[in-house]
Amino acid sequence: MDKKPVLKIRGLTKKYGDVVGVKDLDLDVYLGEIMGFLGPNGAGKTTTIRCCLDLLQKTDGEVKIFGLDSHENAIEIRKRTGYLPGDFGMYDDLKVKTILNYLLSQSGVSDKTKMHELSDRLELDIGRRYGNLSKGNKQKVGIVQAFMADQDLIIMDEPTSGLDPLMQKKCYELFREERDNGKTIFMSSHILAEVEEVCDRVAIIRNARLQVVEKIDSLKDKMGKKLEIEFENDVDPKLFTMEGVEDFNLDGRHATMIVTSNLDEVIKRISKQNVMNMSFETFSLDQLFMTYYTSGGKGR
């Protein structure tokens, strides 16, 4: 992957009066990657995205897209950026085709091939009036309009919201294909499985502050195992004070710990004790994300 940042955020702060939407956020999204943006409701995901697109005025900080300032060069940026808002409406009385043609022409694109391809692929009838569409079909319109102008960067706020699981899968394939074709995608999501399946990297935001930015693979490596042991005799806690062991807790002869590395040495030390019972549990990515959501940014 080319390490050239398409989207570069430094010290981004957005305040709504006294309420802080985002605070001191630094983030890079690199060319040709899918970056997932995770966080609980109200964490600041949408605020960050909308600041990037100049829909909100930054209180402080800098956002550069394609090396251009997000406010000063907003028009140039939008020529090369597709956007799917999290909550959007269109013209209820007009046909989807009319709306898409209008948006495409606003982007200065006359070739409608991709618009038709995407509509067919997502099984969207563009001859129907927008107001008559179901929630899921309206979401498809949003996805089609985000990708149809074939722009270099696609920013999406919860893109598969309202879609059925089958359609979600189709969208994941679409996102990966677009990435493989050199597009950069920055997407927020609530769906952890979606992030795990689609994203190359993930940024987690909580209480308006960025908690972590990691490759999905690295996160999986960091996940560790949870060990729960019942010893026959008392043990010295110092025995497990070592690198790779976190959150050691001893309650009588019952011990719990998280092992992120050095597993071989941990097993050897355990084997020197009389063990009555032992369980071994691998963290899922879900559990890992939940710890970021709830533990104030320290992960486990």
Binding site: E76, T81, F88, M90, S107
Partner: peptide
Amino acid sequence: DERRMDIIFSTPLP
């Protein structure tokens, strides 16, 4: 009201 602003200003419309 109809939440169209974001879509409209996702295009290069000043």
